[in-house]
Design a protein around this nucleic acid. Sequence first.
DNA 1: CTGTTAGCGCTTTCAA
DNA 2: TTGAAAGCGCTAACAG
Lengths: 344, 344
Amino acid sequence: MNAGVRSPTLHDVAREAGVSLATASRSLNGSARKVNDAYRERVQAAAARLGYTPNLSAQAVAKGSTMTVALVVGDISDPYFSSIAAGVIGAAEESGFIVTMAVTARDSERELALVRALRGQRPRVLILAGSRTSDEPSQQALVAELTAFESTGGRVVVISQHELPFDTVLLDNYGGARRLAAELVGLGYRRFAVISGVPSLLTSRDRVLGFLDGLAEHDLTVPADRIVHTEFTRDGGFAGAVELLEHGIDDVELVFAVNDVMAVGAMSALREAGRIPGESIAVAGFDDIPTVRDITPALTTVQIPLIDVGRHAVELALAPRTAGGTEIPVETTVVIRESTPARK
Amino acid sequence: MNAGVRSPTLHDVAREAGVSLATASRSLNGSARKVNDAYRERVQAAAARLGYTPNLSAQAVAKGSTMTVALVVGDISDPYFSSIAAGVIGAAEESGFIVTMAVTARDSERELALVRALRGQRPRVLILAGSRTSDEPSQQALVAELTAFESTGGRVVVISQHELPFDTVLLDNYGGARRLAAELVGLGYRRFAVISGVPSLLTSRDRVLGFLDGLAEHDLTVPADRIVHTEFTRDGGFAGAVELLEHGIDDVELVFAVNDVMAVGAMSALREAGRIPGESIAVAGFDDIPTVRDITPALTTVQIPLIDVGRHAVELALAPRTAGGTEIPVETTVVIRESTPARK
DNA sequence: CTGTTAGCGCTTTCAA
DNA sequence: TTGAAAGCGCTAACAG
């Protein structure tokens, strides 16, 4: 009931079983069958009797390596990240890895500090799921830190864009947005507004670029005052829509928000202003987080197989190291739903 | 670029700075200022030059304790858990703790195995966020495992109900559901259906009980065939609604799903069957996960401050141990939204 | 205040 | 095969 009893150690088990430390170690963890069955059983029985659990930290220092995957996300309560995390955790556990998690709160200073701290865990793998930003001076420090980590045997996997010189799970943000634009034009839409994240956010930038290029193919453009920059969150989406409404968007037919949570926030703002999503105005998002098929109207979006993205990240990390850094491209597919009905 | 270089050790730093191992240790980590400033600076400079990061595993074995919090959740991609996780991670990081995470997939066998494995990390704190089940034989083994963990100095915190003899963050599932029922009756509802989880799930059971008791106060009941048992997920909610529809629920005025993701799934099923949530049928949920204020109609639910729940769990774990196990009760508050308009 | 020296729990040579 | 013993990187007495 009260503390004070220490956890049984391998030493205890060995004594209980009447064998040496080495034999105990080999019976419980050592790979190949190099231990007499009789001994092995004695040891296992003793371990069970004592409730022995190997001290992972001790194993880590003795072996010089851990079985942990460190995952860095922007915000775990965001469905985008939590879905990726689910994939990472699932795949990691299947391979016997433990996953530790840290949250950057979308702050790149903080991300750098976290990576530095996480290095202390000597994880075998470090996965960065937060989206990259451009022009940050801290990016350079981050690369240095990650490179140092790799040079000591760690594996780095970045999810999203291939800005950093590491293995990456590449999301086709640009292409997905471009195809989305094409499909929307095909549905009859001509006048658009865009709710974007801050320009330095690469994911956001790529999606906006792809969308605009997709429109440009059909000789359509979006006036600069119809592209607002805001936070990459639900509230950002809401605020972005409010800003657009203030600019006056009576003739806008469709609002593209660069991710689903923003789109959902935007829908609420539009609705509050009397514009009915899916009826008097269309809305599209990006990601296909689980809930958007259940909202009304169901949201048109670009699907990313988020769980798979997480799984791929660990597969990549556990695969043999390659020369220039491998990349696994992940397809994005346009999903048209009721929020963008065909016009006319 | 290639592996092979080992991480710099404290030893390297000490040599580089021309001081002893102990001095290096004290300069970098040791608590009180017991080191000459000149030395301290030399050491810190050397550490920076070498890119030294203390090996947490080594520290753990030397100190005999770690700075990690292990969090066990049912499914991290479920907003209920991911919000709690956000709170846990936030609070843990503020106290300098690392959090490791494991997922039970709502399987109590698996939960037991995970707890056993997690013990190997020798975390200071083990937080169980998955909801408890009754009558499972594995519960007993779980208690044994957790008790053993506590007896070796660890802290256990359970989130949800006080079934287990450990510190707990107590969610008022019963009371919240009861108050919800009262409010709904106040709004004019009289005929209900309930989509519940499996009966052994304590959270589900408490919510159903509270709801029924709340109705009973007004001499209302729910016929047994209007209470369906299904999975505690979005798809479960969908399936539950389908089942209700098959039973025929033309006269049902309101469907109470025992959690929000189920309610959201149920809404989709109802809508597909031609019943419009918020118009031809009302729906209520429980949890108040972030998205439900943005769905249409916005969902009436019982709010749990999920982030705070996570924070409380670590506060509890980091507070001095008490005799019988402390519990922090968390209030739940009814939030009436458009999915349950006043009748007539 | 600094350095020396045992450990911490475990793995892994190296002999036996 | 098994056991003794030397580490792994770090902390914490214990002397100086």
